[in-house]
């Protein structure tokens, strides 16, 4: 069931790719996206994530239903817009992907390295467990407001670190996050670049990831998007749930305060 939906999405993706290459203008894509109506192929991946959440799995043969994503064990509704946040049990600030890894290791007994090794779909892959779980959790936050907490000192420190990381230039191309994401109404080739230093751009970005990537036929997570930013900055591979990801996401999330969650989104 889920697989056939996935394959359908892939076919649609192929069709758009052809269109997209010919005329990849934003308005053209918006038109195309509107043709989908409410039919985001991500719904099939959300279903898959829901099953993964409730199934007894891993060496410990337990579900993730005791996983605390910030609102108490097992609560999935409306958690996405309040992450990253400080968790007492690890005494650290964690984002959704880092927290899911933590639960899969601590509750289900999976090996951290193995989760991280296959965390994002590669070329031609049909989706990963992490992508499905993130889609499921994000979907359960649809319509809720972004309210990333800044009450704990560690949360404040993460924001400051995220801001410093955002402007940090490195690598052979001298790029920082800010190189592409501090101005409004700019684009690379035809791809619009969100200004992540302002509420409008930060909200539009924060609230629409994870997203079904039509050209790739899979759900992509924010961690995947950030890893690819780092790759394009000519930097080494950014690791999921790492401090840099958490800090940068804290910076973006706080800047996005008040936005309405609308994920999984639909992107080219």
């Amino acid at each position: 069931m889920a697989m056939s939906g996935r394959m359908m999405g892939g076919l649609l993706g192929g069709a758009l790719l052809a269109v997209g290459l010919a005329q990849a203008q934003d308005d053209t894509f918006d038109e195309y996206r509107s043709m989908f109506g409410d039919d985001n192929p991500a719904i099939f991946i959300v279903d898959e994530g829901s099953e993964l959440w409730t199934q007894a799995r891993g060496p410990e043969n337990v579900s993730l239903e005791q996983c605390d994503l910030g609102q108490g064990p097992g609560v999935v509704e409306n958690v996405y817009g309040q992450l990253p946040r400080y968790f007492e049990d690890t005494d650290s600030v964690m984002d959704l992907e880092g927290r899911l890894i933590h639960c899969m290791v601590e509750l289900q007994g999976f090996k951290r390295e193995e989760i991280i090794e296959g965390i994002y779909s590669g070329a031609g892959d049909n989706g990963t467990e992490m992508e499905a779980l993130v889609a499921y959790v994000a979907d359960a936050s649809q319509g809720s407001k972004v309210a990333v907490p800044q009450s704990h000192p560690e949360e404040k420190a993460a924001y400051k670190a995220g801001e410093a990381l955002f402007y940090h230039r490195a690598g052979p191309y001298d790029f920082s996050c800010a190189t592409c994401h501090r101005q409004s109404d700019k684009r690379i080739r035809l791809q619009s670049l969100p200004n992540l230093t302002e509420a409008e751009g930060a909200r539009a970005t924060y609230t629409t990831w994870p997203a079904y990537r039509i050209s790739q036929g899979v759900v992509r997570t924010m961690g995947w998007r950030m890893r690819n930013c780092a790759r394009q900055q000519r930097l080494p591979e950014l690791q999921p749930g790492s401090e840099a990801v958490v800090d940068l996401l804290m910076y973006m999330g706080v800047n996005a305060e008040g936005g309405s969650m609308d994920a999984p989104g639909l992107k080219r």
Binding site: A161, G171, L235, P236, S242, E243
Partner: peptide, 21 residues
């Protein structure tokens, strides 16, 4: 904050692109 130190613990070398970057 020390962004350089944070990045060094948050990234891994891959395909010849090392932390010296």
């Amino acid at each position: 904050p020390d962004p350089d130190a944070i990045l060094r613990t948050s990234m891994q070398a891959r395909n010849g692109v090392g932390l010296d970057r």
